[in-house]
Design a protein around this nucleic acid. Structure first.
Length: 309
DNA sequence: TGCCAGGTCATGG
DNA sequence: CCATGACATGGC
């Protein structure tokens, strides 16, 4: 099997591939197996030189696709040196050293996050897996289970909403399809978004139904190279409010404005450290209950029942 | 069982 | 502008 060693130091595959930025990586023994574009790849640490060992099934002379994806030459220390010296972020860095951002394909990334809304990460993985198996093209790889590429916008645009729902994406199906149509028709020029100023790129993405600020920001950060973008999701809201604002009630818009200015030019990386650390190692340090005090759900259900009758 | 999940949109104050 | 509920589906 063709293999290569990418020289790199301080690259943590576990935290990078399992931190909720990409959803198709599976840990098998000491390796990570996944799909990048149309290629299967297995990643592990090289026992000899300091670096990442990669194995794949074809094109033994071309590894540019993988270098682009993993971005091993990114200067992590330089980026970390721009972070604010606040204790919360520093603790996250200490506990997730070597966490990096991948450079993903814009369509797969956008589509994945459209499918992510109000789902747990395990479920997001499942839906994406279903989508690839239903509509993607088979990929050559050493294992026996079927493995497929992520389907193109053209394919998804041509599929019925009912077929999409069979992949368990629920109410996200029309959003997924609409995004595929807008991208396939060129009304949204996904591959060239990185050339636009941030505000205009975000505006383009938010024209897609089902794509609001958070999903747009994930696509901009994880696949369009906007390194300053700091997606604010439910977890990050909890972290910011509890650990940066002493648990005072802060409006979502205000939290976004704080994050934009506080975390600096590599805010997106900072966000990923906070997200991963407080979602995993820091489970006990962030209150898992919803932020906003609201009517107890039991009472809401009572109201619903009353209304139905 | 009932709550919640890497949200967004429409609606009613 | 702000708050709230609907929207599918499934883990815990």
């Amino acid at each position: 099997m063709p293999s290569v060693i990418l020289p790199v130091s301080n690259y943590n595959l576990d935290s990078t591939l399992d931190s909720g930025q990409a959803f198709r990586w599976v840990k098998v023994g000491n390796s990570w197996e996944g799909v990048v574009g149309t290629r299967w790849v297995r990643l592990s640490y090289s026992p000899d030189a300091p670096g990442i060992r990669a194995e794949t099934c074809q094109d033994p002379d071309d590894w540019s696709w993988l270098k682009k994806y993993l971005d091993p030459d990114f200067d992590l220390d330089l980026a970390l040196s721009t972070f604010p010296q606040d204790p919360v972020l520093q603790e996250a860095i200490q506990n997730c050293s070597g966490l990096r951002l991948l450079r993903q394909d814009p369509w797969e990334c956008l589509a994945s996050f459209i499918l992510s809304s109000t789902k747990q990460i395990v479920q997001i993985r499942e839906v994406i897996s279903n989508v690839t198996r239903c509509f993607g093209a088979p990929i050559k790889h050493p294992g026996s289970r079927p493995l497929c590429s992520f389907p193109s916008p053209q394919i998804i645009a041509s599929v019925s909403e009912t077929e999409l729902r069979s992949c368990k994406m629920g109410f996200r199906a029309p959003y997924f399809k609409a995004a595929a149509e807008l991208v396939h028709s060129g009304q949204i020029d996904l591959p060239n978004l990185h050339r636009l100023p941030l505000g205009m790129a975000r505006e383009q993405l938010m024209k897609i139904p089902g794509v609001g600020r958070k999903i747009a920001d994930c696509a901009l950060l994880f696949s369009c190279g906007f390194e300053e973008v700091f997606p604010v999701d439910v977890w990050i809201r909890k972290v910011l409010q509890q650990l940066y604002f002493k648990n005072r009630k802060i409006k979502a818009q205000r939290l976004i404005e704080f994050a934009e200015t506080h975390f600096g030019p590599y805010g997106g990386l900072a966000q990923q450290y906070l997200f991963h650390y407080f979602r995993t190692a820091g489970r006990n340090q962030v209150n898992r209950r919803p932020i906003r005090s609201k009517t107890p759900r039991s009472k809401q259900n009572e109201d619903k029942k009353v209304r139905k009758k």
